[in-house]
Amino acid sequence: MDRFHLMNVFVAVAEAESFAGAARRLRLSPPAVTRAVVALEERLGVRLLTRTTRVVRVTEAGARYLEDACRIMMELDEADVAAAGVNAAPRGHLAVTAPVLFGKLYVMPVIAEYQSAFEQTSVSALFVDRLVNLVEEGIDVGIRIGQLPDSSLRAIRVGQVHRVVVGAPAYFHEHGVPERPEDLARHRLVAASGVSPTNDWVFQSASEKRTVRVQPRIIVNTNDAALEAARRGYGLTRLLSYQIAPELASGELRAVLTDCEAPDLPVHVVHREGRHGSAKVRSFVDLAVARLRADSALGP
């Protein structure tokens, strides 16, 4: 059988998690779908699917092959579009993810600009403070803050941020300014679990790395909440530099312990597609990279 046909049938079965569902989608008979999957597994010499009476699941090898097969099929579709002379017009649905506050401040403006420029596209945004698996959750483009684990994702660095301890001028007037990380024990602290998942705050001076065990009076699960507490003069909090850039610029908040901040965290735009990826992804990545690299809050 034709290799592309076998691949196309396998993808349909894997996505539908059903031979019957794939048969309906492809307008083939169920026996023809079964024969195609068996032929593909025999050709590759590996089991791609596990079958039970109720459901069909991809094996570990099947999951890897599914990712590659989807990419190949998408590249073939893009080749067809390019040959037709309309490759320059992004179209279709794009899924994007980013941390919550970063998405609000930096990614939404990019999405609005992108969608206004390419009206044949639609965009969904998943803003969450957790590591999103682009493959498993069907995401096209993501923004990652921090060191990247080894993966097959393509990554473009667009800047860096760092953790900053901040408080309101009124708070410092009443409670004083900490001169050393150890002085934090005498201050009211608010911890954002997304930025500081533990009570160990790490600082880095020219000569040494220091870890301070802090005792927050308030622990919140959103950065916005910690920021609001600091704005109101309740106490000190530790956030990423981009999250409090406007407040630092206006003087509403003041940074302390700046001579012993932890090392910078890189910011990357990541995606799954290669050099010949879809026009919708390439266009969004190019726009996001340009806008983020131009933002002074993300460093030089």
Rank of each mutant, 00 (worst) to 15 (best):
M1K: 06
V11E: 13
A12P: 00
E15R: 15
E15T: 06
F19R: 03
A22V: 00
S29Y: 07
S29T: 14
P31V: 06
P31E: 07
A32W: 06
R35A: 10
R35P: 02
V37Q: 03
A39R: 15
A39I: 00
L40E: 02
R43P: 02
G45W: 07
V46Q: 13
V46T: 15
R47E: 10
R54V: 13
V55K: 06
V55F: 07
V58L: 10
T59W: 11
E67T: 02
R71V: 07
M74K: 12
M74F: 03
D77P: 02
D77V: 07
A82C: 05
A82M: 08
A84D: 04
A89P: 01
L94C: 08
L94N: 00
A98E: 03
V100E: 14
L101H: 01
K104E: 14
L105Y: 03
V110M: 12
V110Y: 06
E113K: 09
Y114G: 01
F118Y: 15
Q120Y: 09
Q120E: 15
A125V: 13
L126F: 12
L126W: 07
D129T: 03
V135M: 01
I139Y: 05
R144M: 10
P149W: 07
D150Q: 12
L153V: 02
A155R: 02
R157P: 11
R157T: 11
G159M: 07
G159H: 02
H162G: 12
H162W: 13
V164M: 01
V164K: 00
V165T: 04
V166M: 06
G167F: 11
G167H: 00
P169T: 05
F172Y: 14
F172I: 06
V177A: 10
E179M: 08
E179H: 10
R180D: 09
P181E: 05
E182M: 08
E182T: 03
D183W: 09
D183R: 01
D183Q: 05
A185Q: 13
R186W: 05
R186Q: 01
R188V: 09
A192V: 04
A192H: 02
G194Q: 13
N199S: 11
N199T: 06
Q204T: 12
S207H: 14
K209L: 09
K209A: 07
R210A: 12
T211K: 08
V212G: 04
Q215G: 04
Q215A: 09
P216T: 02
I219G: 04
N221T: 12
N223P: 01
D224T: 12
A226R: 00
L227K: 02
A229H: 12
Y234M: 11
L236D: 05
T237N: 03
S241Q: 02
Q243T: 10
A245R: 03
P246A: 09
L248Q: 00
S250H: 05
G251C: 10
L253I: 13
L253K: 00
V256A: 10
A262C: 06
A262F: 13
P263A: 11
D264Q: 13
D264L: 10
P266E: 08
V267Q: 00
V269T: 00
E273A: 13
G274R: 14
G274A: 13
G274M: 09
G274E: 04
A279N: 08
V285C: 10
D286E: 15
R291S: 11
A294W: 00
A297C: 10
L298D: 01
G299P: 03
